[in-house]
Design a protein around this nucleic acid. Structure first.
Lengths: 194, 194, 194, 194
DNA sequence: TATGAATGAGTCTTCATTCAT
DNA sequence: CATGAATGAAGACTCATTCAT
C-alpha cells in the first residue's frame, strides 16, 4: 500500500462523516483540513477536487452501511431472518450503528438530487442495488418455500425500502426512538406475513 | 394589503421552490434576486436575513402541501377514504402535485438536521402535526366502526408517514414512477386491512 | 416656529450624542432613525444628507459645552476666577457635565482631520474661538491688574487649552477620575501663578 | 523568517498609517488591499479579520513612537534632559517624526472608546505605561537630586502627558506649528521648575 | 507528495440615498 | 412634510482552487 494510497484512505475515512452530516454544499474545504489535520494542498494532491472527495466519501459511507447489514444477514440462515435483521439493527441504540449522519443514500438523494447529478447517480445505483438485494432474498425464499409463491417481489422489496428510509428520516427529525421502534414493529409484522 | 406585504408575499412565492430544491445552504442570495427580479437591498428591506426568507419559504411550501391533502380529504366522507387519498395524490402525474422540490418536511429534515436548528424545529413540528392528523382520523374511524378497535393508532399513523416519506424519497431519486406506484399499492393494502 | 424647524431641532438634539460618541463614520442612518423614531425619508426631508446632520449635531454639541462654561464664568467676577472654573467643571462628577461623548472639538479633531474637511474646519474655528476667549480674559485680567503684565497671552491660552483637552482624552481612556483631578490641580496652580 | 511572517509584517507596515489616519471604522478592506497591492484573500490568509490587522497596526504605530522617544531619551544623561526631549521632538518639523496620522494612543482613545473595547484596552495600557515611564524618570531624578523631593510624581507625570496629547491634538487640528511650539515652551518651563 | 501562500469570484449583509405616493 | 419601499454600491468575510517551492 503506497503512501499516497494510505493518505487517500485516511482522508476518506476522516471526512466521510462530515459530508454525511453537513451535506455536500454545507461542507467546506476548511472542514476537510480541520478534521484531517492536513493542508489544502495535500487534499488537492490526492483528489482532483471537492467533488472527488465527496464521491469517495459517499462510497465509503455506503460500504460502511452495507457491511453492517451484510454481516448481520450472514448470521441468519432463513431468508425471512435475513429480512428481519433490519428491524433489529435500525432500532439498536437508536440506529447509531449506521454511519454518522445517517443513511448516505437518503442524505444524498435529498440534498443532491437537483444540484449534483454525479452524486445523485451514485445514490440511485446504490438504492437499486439494495432493492435488488431484497428481490433476490425474496426469490430465494420463495424457492425455499419460506414465502408464498405469488409475491410481487419488486413491490415487497421497494415497500420494505420505503419503510426503512422513511423510518430513518423520522428518527433523524424527531430524536425520538419510539417512532422508529413502532415502524420497525410494523415492518416485522409485514415481513412475517409474507 | 400594503405594498410591503405584497412584496414579501411575492418574494416568498417566487423563492419557495428554490429553497425546496437547492436547500438552504445551496441557495444563494443571487438565486433569490434572480428569481424575483429584485435587488438584494429590497430583499433585506422585507426580511431580516436569509434565514428569515428560508423559514417563510418553508412555511409556504408546507402550506401548499397541506392544502393539497386537505382539499382531497374533504372530498372523502369515510375515514378510510380520507387515508386512502394519499395513495392517489402521490401517484398522480408522478407526485407533481407536491410543491416543486418535493416534500418540504423531508427536504428540511435531511438538510437542516445538523446545520440549521431553527428550520429543523419547524420541520419537526410539521411532521408531528401530520402524524397527529392521522391519529385523529384513525380514532374517529374507530368510533365510527370503520376500523378495528384494537389498533395502535400511534403505530399505524407513523407507519403510514414512513411509507409516504420513503416513497417520495425513492421517487425523487429514481425518477421512476413505477416505484412509488408499487409502494402506494402496498399502502392501500395496509389501510384497507386496518 | 414652523413644524419643519421643530422637527429639525428635534433630530439635532436626539442625534447629537450619537455622533459625539460613535463618530461620523461610525454613525449610520439607521442609528439616526432609531434614536429619533423617524423614518429615513423624514431625515432627508429636513437635511440634505448625513453630512448636514453631522454638522448641525456638532454645532449643537459645541453650543452645549459653550453654554456650560459661559454660565459658570458669568458667576465669577474676577478674571482669574473665570479661568479657574474649568478646573472645577471638568472634575465635577467626572466631567459628566460635558455633552455625552465628551468634548466635540476633541472628537472631531481626531476623527475627521483626515477624512472630513468640512467638519474639521468647524472644529478648528471652534478651537480658535475658545483660545481667543482665553486671550481676551487674560488681557482683561492684565488691564485689571490681576495678572502680570508680561504674560504671553497666546501661550498661556493655548497651554490651558492643551491641558484641558489632554485631560479629557485621558479621562475618557482610563475611566479613572483621579487622573483628571490631578491634571486640574496642576492647571489651578498654573493659573494661580500667572 | 517565513514568507508568511514577512507578508504579515509587510501588511502591518503598509496599513499602519491608514488606520492611524482614517481610524478603524473609516478604514475599509479595500483601503488595505489598495495600499498593499494584495488581495482580500491574502489579507485574510494572514490575519483573522479586520480587527486583527487593526490591533497589529496599532502596536506597530505605538512601537514606532516609543522607539522615537526612547532613542532620544537614551542620548540624554540627566533625568531632566530625558523629560525635555519631548519638547524638542514634538516641535521638530511640525511633529512629523510621529507616526503618520499622529499619536496612536490619542487617535485610538477618541475613536474607539465607545465602539471598539479591545483597541481601547490596548490604548489604555499604552497610556498607563507611558505615565509610569514618566513616574520612574521622576523618581530616579529625585534620588539623583535633580528634582525637589516633595514632588507628587503621579501628578507631574499625568500633567506632562496631558500637555503632550493636548498639543498633538491642537497641532493636528490647526495645522499651525506655532501652537505646539508655544505649548512645548510651557512644558519646558514646567519641567525646568520641578 | 506535501506545503503554505495567494487568488478572485463568491458569500451574506449594511450603507447612504432617492422617489413615488 | 412624511412615508416606506427600493436601489446599487460598498461593507467584511469565505469559498474552492492553483502553484511555486
Amino acid at each position: 500500500m503506497s503512501k499516497a494510497y494510505k493518505t487517500k484512505e485516511y482522508i476518506i475515512e476522516k471526512t466521510a462523516s462530515i459530508f454525511n452530516t453537513k451535506g455536500y454544499a454545507g461542507t467546506s474545504l476548511n472542514d476537510l483540513t480541520e478534521v484531517t489535520g492536513l493542508t489544502k494542498g495535500s487534499i488537492y494532491g490526492n483528489f482532483k477536487n471537492k467533488d472527488d472527495v465527496a464521491i469517495e466519501a459517499f462510497k465509503y459511507n455506503l460500504q460502511l452501511m452495507s457491511q453492517l447489514f451484510m454481516s448481520e444477514k450472514a448470521k441468519e440462515k432463513s431468508y425471512r431472518g435475513k429480512l428481519l435483521i433490519y428491524t433489529k439493527v435500525l432500532c439498536d441504540s437508536s440506529g447509531s450503528k449506521l454511519p454518522i449522519g445517517g443513511c448516505p443514500i437518503l442524505n444524498t438523494a435529498i440534498e443532491s438530487d437537483d444540484t449534483h447529478p454525479v452524486l445523485k447517480e451514485f445514490a440511485k445505483k446504490a438504492l437499486l442495488n439494495w432493492k435488488n438485494d431484497f428481490v433476490e432474498i425474496l426469490n430465494a425464499g420463495i424457492q425455499a418455500g419460506e414465502f408464498s409463491s405469488d409475491l410481487n417481489t419488486e413491490q415487497v422489496a421497494i415497500t420494505i425500502l420505503a419503510l426503512i428510509e422513511g423510518s430513518i428520516m423520522i428518527n433523524k427529525l424527531t430524536d425520538n426512538n419510539n417512532h422508529i421502534r413502532l415502524i420497525m414493529e410494523s415492518l416485522r409484522d409485514y415481513i412475517n406475513q409474507l
